[in-house]
Design a protein around this nucleic acid. Sequence first.
DNA 1: CGGGATCCTAAACGATACTG
DNA 2: CAGTATCGTTTAGGATCCCG
Lengths: 115, 115
Amino acid sequence: MEMKPELCNVDDALNILVGKWKPIILLTLLKEGTKRFSDLKRSVPGITQKMLTNQLRDLEQEDIITRKVYLQVPPKVEYSMTEYGKTLEPILVAMHEWGTAHSVHKMQKMSQESR
Amino acid sequence: MEMKPELCNVDDALNILVGKWKPIILLTLLKEGTKRFSDLKRSVPGITQKMLTNQLRDLEQEDIITRKVYLQVPPKVEYSMTEYGKTLEPILVAMHEWGTAHSVHKMQKMSQESR
DNA sequence: CGGGATCCTAAACGATACTG
DNA sequence: CAGTATCGTTTAGGATCCCG
């Protein structure tokens, strides 16, 4: 067990997950399976079309999700997790559980700061 | 189990961990315990003093680490994980394991892209 | 319907120099 | 030793408009 290069392995997962909307997108796809672009947009309130496209492109390039285009009018594009992407679930679950367990701590800190 | 507000819990953990150097800083403190500023700087190759200070301040403000100042010349400042901060370890470990397990996948992708 | 192209702002990051 | 202060660069995020 050495130190420096190995610790950087944390960044690989982090870089994939970082982005204002990526965790929500991934959790939605994990929980609800394949989704169309417009359905995904509805599942992520507040996101713009451009940002949704950006985040999906990032995730696609990392092989976390796949993009399936149906050549028809009107267009139809479906997104879903890859098998590789699904391996991220434990991390997302761990973060979700942490956030849920410590929302109390956050509340206390906020009330301190307002004093 | 509802959807929208609950999914945001993921972002709480993510926001704490995000930062170019925070994961390495945290893993170092978790593995090696209390550290002085200069020792920490040595453990994080490439970081500037300013960035180290910034990241430490962020983590301190989130109650993830504590800062203990010894009033002496030359100055001595020690940083260590709080009990609250230590609860992040499972997440960091999960990310580290994921990064380690999938470094092969990353290599394959890189060789694809170079073609 | 599912984008792409353009422009803009705020924040993160970084290099360098200085200090109690 | 452990920082600030200042400056410049880079990047993420977002608003808006256009398109097949």
